[in-house]
């Protein structure tokens, strides 16, 4: 029965992905056969293909329209696809969300509830055998960031470096991006990098499913709580579709099948974003960008639209 379901999922997935065209999506039609394209970033474990296929099938059942999860390497690519209309929805990070956009092309749909709150942290991790106890110890060492547009994997460590005496760009001897929180943990575990910054949700998730990797790492710094990476909708998407999507994901907790997916994601559910959820991220970004002296980055989106029931 289970294999039959998987087969069906795959069949649906394949047939919809071949029939759907990006041009058509931009037309915002309410045609129920139109595939909804949902972008995923490094904020979730994107490698679990079967899980995502099943989830897409679940959402299709709820919404009445095929859903396709689209994976891209960087946040930037996903944001660009949202901007061009190649995606209808996306699970992005708080950092790109607080960026100033003119015209605005995304609106907040929902925020995952993690450990009872829509919050997560950034961990600064090192190899468990290394002598490093704080970020200061990592001076002139090799540091792994996850994505240049990641809050936990880039913005927060950049913000921490603002308080250091030396230039934040030269504090580390060498730094690189893995474009994937899980791979950042791997880079530390394999000692390719001396330190790295990761999403606490991903690290905890890995600790449960890949403990042999996380066991080789040690957390030396935990950030204050930040708003959990939110799910956003493209501004141009049919409001009816947006509303159905919002209901579908927010009611997952009440549905036995939906509950399984939440368990798989290690989330409590999806909820409404409280006001100013991403305020501290915005403040951090401002400070970092001020130091970078990039005038156009000084003004950030202070009041991102939120999807509310009309």
């Amino acid at each position: 029965m289970k294999s039959w379901t998987v087969f069906l999922c795959l069949f649906v997935f394949l047939s919809t992905s071949t029939s759907g065209s990006t041009r058509a999506e931009e037309l915002n039609t309410t045609n129920s056969t139109e595939t909804i394209r949902f972008g995923l970033t490094a904020v979730v474990m994107r490698e679990n293909l079967r899980f995502l296929d099943q989830w897409a099938y679940y959402l299709k059942k709820k919404i009445g329209q095929p859903v396709e999860f689209v994976r891209r390497r960087s946040y930037r690519e996903v944001m660009d696809m949202l901007k061009t209309g190649s995606l209808d929805f996306a699970w992005i990070c708080g950092f790109p969300f607080v960026h100033k956009r003119d015209p605005e092309f995304i609106k907040l749909l929902s925020v995952p509830i993690y450990n009872g709150k829509p919050l997560y942290n950034s961990y600064i991790i090192v190899h468990k055998d290394s002598p490093y106890q704080s970020l200061d110890d990592l001076k002139d060492k090799i540091f792994a960031y996850s994505d240049p547009e990641s809050n936990s994997g880039f913005l927060y460590p950049q913000y921490l470096l603002l308080n250091k005496s030396s230039n934040k760009d030269t504090f580390f001897r060498h730094s690189f991006f893995t474009f994937n929180h899980a791979e950042t943990v791997e880079a530390i575990a394999e000692q390719f990098a001396d330190g790295g910054a990761v999403d606490s949700y991903i690290w905890d998730y890995m600790k449960e499913f890949r403990p042999e990797v996380t066991d080789k790492t040690r957390i030396i710094n935990t950030s204050p709580a930040f708003g959990f990476p939110p799910i956003v909708a493209r501004v141009g998407v049919d409001l009816e579709v947006v509303w159905r999507m919002k209901n579908a994901i927010m009611e997952m907790n009440d549905d036995p099948n939906g509950r399984k997916f939440l368990d798989g994601l290690k989330l409590d559910g999806f909820g409404e974003a409280p006001p100013n959820l991403f305020e501290n991220i915005r403040q951090m970004a401002l400070k970092v960008q001020n130091v970078n002296s990039k005038p156009n980055l000084a003004s950030l989106n202070t009041s991102a639209n939120s999807v509310t029931k009309e």
Partner: peptide, 12 residues
């Protein structure tokens, strides 16, 4: 630039 034994052979 990259080494399979990175702990002894750090990049750079």
């Amino acid at each position: 630039l990259a080494h399979l034994n990175p702990s002894e052979n750090p990049i750079g």
